[in-house]
Design a protein around this nucleic acid. Structure first.
Lengths: 182, 182
DNA sequence: TCTCAAATTGAGAGTACCTCAAGATAGCCT
DNA sequence: AGGCTATCTTGAGGTACTCTCAATTTGAGA
């Protein structure tokens, strides 16, 4: 790759990271092109598509943020770990609109982002199964439910504000085993 | 109003009702104009804005559907009535994308639609307070939570499929008092 | 310095929103 | 019946965005 091309590639990547972090993955490519001092055509030439740019600009950061959420998971019981992970993930989502869009799989054709999404869900499924085996999570919940719950939580986060924490709380209470013992 | 104008108005209203019912309130106005055999400009001249058209084409139907959901509410206990209403509303939302958009307040500037939305939420709040007074709904839930819960449920319905019923079930279980007695 | 592969541009086609000046016409009035 | 005008409709045009591609510019090796 020519030196000027490499330079532009980096500037585009940097501009895209900023724009996506500020406005989520919907940020107009024309804005990104302007910030990078190139024309929109250059972005398509380099990255092929909007999804290609997102993969290049966001997937590393997103993967690291997911790792951070996994690492932030605490708790002594399986249920606590499950709850802790989903909440920690939500906090990261709330702090970064682009990451929230990744978790919500807003752009399913961005392959790298899709991997991050899938890993986020898989982690939740693992913790969910453990909590279920332990008896602290209702047995009639299916692991496939957790992907949808996380998607829904992403929508609540998109709403803005803090309410999502309450909403998630209700959801988690609904998933817990306790009330079904009756 | 001139006879030709009245004729066009009716055709536009009919085309809009159809298009909105099929595709939700996002249906392109240009499609509606084509179906009605007029140009898009005519719609703006008549209805002022997209919101004006939605009010004219959808609010009556939406109000009637809301009435039907309220009427479909059954149950002997306050909790049952609350649960029944939210579910019945969801069924109507799932059957009509435009009504779902009304409930979700996708277009807050459409005044008539906003009224329907507000009435839908107010009804839920009333039933919620009754269930709370009765002790069957957790006391730390706030009536303002129900508007958000219904909004979230509308997003789940927009996802498509049947899953929303499960999601709503988890939510309602989370709202119920039982597990908090411990 | 010359050359050409690589890189970039910007115009253009497509989608949708909304506006407005100009042209078409319904229907009252004579 | 025919003319007049207020009413109505049109379609082109501006905005914002996506994506493509032919034409042009430029880096850097020979």
């Amino acid at each position: 790759m020519r030196a000027d091309a490499r330079r532009n590639l980096e500037r585009i990547r940097a501009a895209a990271s900023e724009a996506f972090a500020e406005h989520g993955l919907d940020a107009p490519l024309e804005d990104i092109a302007r910030r990078a001092g190139v024309s929109a055509g250059t972005i398509y030439h380099r990255f092929g598509s909007r999804e290609g740019l997102m993969d290049a600009a966001v997937s590393d950061i997103a993967a690291r943020k997911l790792d951070a959420a996994i690492a932030a998971t605490t708790g002594t019981t399986p249920w606590e770990r499950f709850e802790s992970y989903v909440s920690a993930l939500g906090e990261v989502q709330a702090a970064d609109p682009a990451f929230n869009d990744v978790v919500a799989l807003r752009y399913p054709h961005a392959g790298e982002l899709r991997s991050v999404h899938e890993r986020a869900i898989a982690q939740a499924e693992t913790l969910m199964r453990a909590a279920q085996a332990d008896g602290s999570l209702r047995p009639d919940a299916d692991p496939s439910d957790i992907g949808r719950l996380i998607w829904l939580n992403a929508q609540a986060i998109r709403l803005g504000g803090d309410w999502w924490r309450r909403g998630l709380g209700f959801f988690l209470d609904g998933l817990s085993r306790t009330r079904h013992d009756q």
